[in-house]
Amino acid sequence: MATVDIREVRKAFGSTQILHGVSVAIEDGQFVVLVGPSGCGKSTLLRMLAGLENITGGEIAIGERVVNNVPPKDRDIAMVFQNYALYPHMTVFQNMAFSMKLAGAPKDVMEREVQKAARILGLEQLLHRFPRQLSGGQRQRVAMGRAIVRNPQVFLFDEPLSNLDAKLRVQMRSEIKELHQRLKVTTVYVTHDQIEAMTMADLIVVMNHGRIEQAGAPLELYDRPANLFVAGFIGSPAMNMLEGHIADGAFHAAGGVRWPLPPGAPTSGEVIYGIRPEHLHLDPGGLPASIQVIEPTGSETQVLLRIGDASLLGAFRERISGAPGSALPVSPDISLVHLFDKKTGQRIP
């Protein structure tokens, strides 16, 4: 177990800059999720942690040791690959025991360690199968088993669940989380699925175009997104964004919107007014928005509304019925409104 310190790390492939100075301090035993859209450099950063890509600039330290020039095998880390990278010519047992075999461990130690990991992951019955005889979920578990027996300082996961179906993904998600609570090994987990990030992480690092947009605890990112990108990325369904301006102590936008401002708001200027669907509520005195689509999910009702030429999604606890085109009066929950500067995209108060 160890801390991981990423300081101003840069990466360029040839003349293309991929990472532009990324810094994250990871505490011992923390579960960190790197999340961001495809191509933002998550895998690249993870591979640099593993030592599979060299570091163009900056420093990475695992524990106290700067590992910039330490080869992968001496970094004491284990990685679970997106395609699992199981050795096809080895049985599950041999796959899991491979690192110990290379280290020259005695047979009984190998047997004991593999059995222990297999028990944790429910692989006891499969130890003599070859990878091609396993289902996707089982392969995923073998890949994790191979990492566990190493007993590493840091676990790295690169989108380990993206090849599984939705149900298995939810199940493996909680298994990984449980495993982490049990082993308490520092973990860096890459995903582009924000739900995975929200449910698993102690610390979420949101990346975009090779930069960190915001790092923080899941609810911190949900409650106080630092900019438009994070606001739109975290939370499902995504936050509504209305363009408009501030005047007379209220927010004005097309379609007759005149909404109150959160405390600490500026007194004028062009802004974007963000409100999450679940923070709109029915209010007889509110703005009459016109209903476009109603989607009841049982526990809540999602309604797509139209105000002026902007669309607005609302998620309500109440059951709602109404013909498309009819009016539904709604108001935002003022304490949960987010304001962003229209030019810079940064959060205002």
């Binding site: 030592g51 095998k73 395609n83 990278a85 491979f98 290379l102 191979r146």
Partner: peptide, 26 residues
């Protein structure tokens, strides 16, 4: 697949061991 070599590298294999245990059998 190159990721097999990367996995072997993380598992602590030297260049010769990568040949002996991954390349050759495959």
């Amino acid at each position: 697949s190159p990721s097999l070599y990367e996995a072997a590298m993380l598992d602590g294999a030297t260049a010769w061991q990568r040949f002996r245990f991954v390349t050759f059998p495959m």
